[in-house]
Amino acid sequence: MNPISLPNAPIVKRKSRKLACRRYFNLLYVLPALALFGVFSLFPIVKTVQYSFTDANGINPNFHYVGLANYRSALTDSQWWQAVGNGGVFALLSLIFMNSIALLLSVAVNANIRGNQIYRVVFYIPPILSGIVVGYVWKWIYDPKGILNAFLQGIGLGGYTHAWIGSTDTALYAVAVSSMWQGVGGSFILFLAGLQGIPKEWYEAAEIDGANRLQKLRYITVPSLRSVYTMVNILTILGALGIFNQVYAMTMGGPGYTTEVPALRIYREAFTNSDFGMSSAFSIVFGVMLFILSLIQLKLSRNKE
């Protein structure tokens, strides 16, 4: 036993007890955040899982458990898979076109071109607009007598005028364009943040070594943005698959099931068909699919690193 420690032992013990008490007491500060998380995030998830096994109609608190019937019905529903396929098309188009445009814009703005501060603001305006408003604006643009057809006629391409969202050939792509127009600003900001994190010295060193613009882009910019790509891609896939507002405002999934997307189907089951059980089952299936997709994307990017 250390004789020096003897007279101090009770004091140390008391101090450590006080510290422990204070530590536990400090946990109370986290309680409001925990309560909010529990009420607004955890509880709805738990209830969604619960409802997915029931025939709940959204109003009556008395419902019956139906086992896996809703899941069986969801997984064998051809329209659901068509909606997922449409979501996949949105995701693919966004990954290819939207993110490429966003990357090019961010590289251009990061290159200190004149007015880059203004561009930064302008490119970020669409993401802060309401999706419904964007949907209605584009619906007006695509109208048979709208601005797009008027423009085509004005430049002598009257033969290409079209009922853009009223035709099965173009409706899906027309909605995708409006969605990408709104989403490009989000990817742009993330890419720009990633670009600004690359040390300038690397470019200076490359210049000394005689690297041209393309080489700098290929050997410095692109590899340095790998983690940003992963995040942008995950967000793009989740956003594109979860698209709702534009489809709701522009086509309601039509013509037929041409622009039907998972979120619209979930909404229709809940609020048109009053089948919250089925709607919850679709939500869970969809949530699991998105979770798996995100995991795969993360895993792939880690393997590359």
Binding site: S167, T168, G253, G254, P255, G256, R268, T272, N273, S274
Partner: peptide, 21 residues
């Protein structure tokens, strides 16, 4: 017995009116 029958009709008619069904 299910609103999905009405939905099938509505979606189908949307295609009939443009000659796609």
């Amino acid at each position: 017995p299910s609103p999905n029958v009405d939905t099938a009709m509505q979606k189908g008619v949307q295609l009939i009116v443009i000659g796609q069904s």
